[in-house]
């Protein structure tokens, strides 16, 4: 039963993803490997769409994955699955808000959870790097060292890092600008 499975997978994601939108990413990668509902490349495209459209990124990702997996009902069920644990947890915590905020165990647990979330997101990012900046398949066919690198993509990545981090006039721009520019470069230079 695909709908039940979708709901359950996203319920788990909502329950364990700590630290905002991108935190759902490692869960979605593990989901793609486990279920085969979508590929790593598709997931990278979904991130781009989720970043370029209104709404919370985590919710957008769930909707997109749900839609890709099982159409409109899938989108609805995946999103509700993601939101259910959030709603339940907050409804419980809201009644003991002050005690929760001041609890030293909660604080200590989050001391461990925050770096964990960063590590998980970085590891998921490596998977996107693997499919977008390198040619593992081509390299395994030709065994030529130069074929291993996708030079055009690496050049674009370097330019983007400089623009988004170091150029004052550009780094405040919304990610959608860089996504659109990258799409344009991709078409222009036939990536």
């Amino acid at each position: 039963m695909i709908f039940l499975k979708l709901y359950w997978e996203f319920f788990k994601t909502g329950l364990f993803a700590v630290g905002g939108g991108m935190a759902t990413l490692p869960f979605l990668y593990s989901m793609s490997e486990k279920t085969g509902w979508f590929s790593a490349a598709q997931l990278a495209d979904m991130i781009a769409v989720a970043e370029s459209t209104p709404g919370p990124i985590g919710v957008n990702m769930a909707t997109y994955v749900g839609f890709t997996t099982a159409g409109l009902p899938g989108a609805l069920i995946a999103t509700l699955g993601l939101a259910t644990p959030c709603v339940v947890i907050i409804l419980i915590i809201a009644s003991v808000l002050d005690a929760f905020r001041k609890n030293k165990y909660v604080d200590a647990a989050f001391y461990g959870l925050r770096p964990c979330s960063v590590g998980l997101i970085a590891a998921a990012g490596m998977l996107v790097v693997k499919i977008s900046l390198f040619n593992f398949e081509l390299f395994s066919e030709t065994s030529r060292f130069a074929d291993f690198f996708n030079f055009k993509a690496i050049a674009l990545a370097i330019v983007l890092i400089i623009c988004t981090r170091y150029v004052k006039a550009l780094k405040k721009l919304h990610p959608i600008v860089f996504i659109a520019a990258s799409a344009f470069v991709g078409i222009l230079f036939a990536f």
Binding site: V118, G125, R165, A183, F184, G186, I187
Partner: peptide, 27 residues
């Protein structure tokens, strides 16, 4: 397909930037 190949490169950079930003508070 070409457009999304370009976009994927941008996604790498966006994730990288998100990690750097989170790092400051988390570590």
């Amino acid at each position: 397909k070409s457009a999304f190949a370009g976009i994927r490169v941008c996604v790498c950079v966006l994730i990288f930037n998100a990690v750097v930003k989170l790092w400051k508070n988390a570590v």
